[in-house]
């Protein structure tokens, strides 16, 4: 895990989450903007997946449990897929709100992943 990338990722997920929440509560259906923001969050999660697979080989190992980290990352990767699929099927303003909820949940999960990788003592 790379620290600055992770911080950026949490920031992007929070911004995307708030954007979708606000736009959704304002009554907009899922749009290229909100789906695009969610896709960006998903893309960063996939980058994170590659980084977390490669970095132990470069001597950057998690301080916490790799299994717990993997469960968080796996669940996080599923969320935009699920919420995005929902948004394509249910084209109402609530689908946009749901994209926001998923992105905010991802922000929390990436924060937890950061704790597992860097902060835990063995």
């Amino acid at each position: 895990m790379i620290e600055w990338l992770t911080v950026a990722q949490v920031a992007v997920a929070i911004v995307a989450g708030l954007l979708c929440l606000v736009v959704g509560l304002a009554g907009r259906r899922p749009s290229d903007l909100t789906l695009g923001a969610t896709a960006l969050v998903e893309l960063l999660l996939l980058v994170q997946l590659v980084v977390s697979i490669v970095s132990p080989a470069a001597g950057n190992t998690p301080t916490g449990d790799a299994l717990e980290f993997g469960l968080y990352l796996g669940s996080a990767i599923l969320l935009p897929v699920g919420a995005g699929f929902w948004a394509l099927v249910d084209r109402s303003k609530w689908a946009t709100v749901i994209l926001g909820v998923a992105n905010l949940a991802i922000a929390v999960m990436v924060y937890r992943m950061h704790e597992i990788w860097f902060v835990q003592g063995g």
Partner: peptide, 24 residues
């Protein structure tokens, strides 16, 4: 629908965590 999704996320989080706790 939002309620359902929040529940689904919580179910996913609780399942993942308890799976980890019980296994390890």
């Amino acid at each position: 629908r939002v309620l359902v999704v929040v529940y689904a996320i919580l179910a996913l989080a609780a399942t993942g965590r308890s799976f980890y706790q019980i296994v390890s």
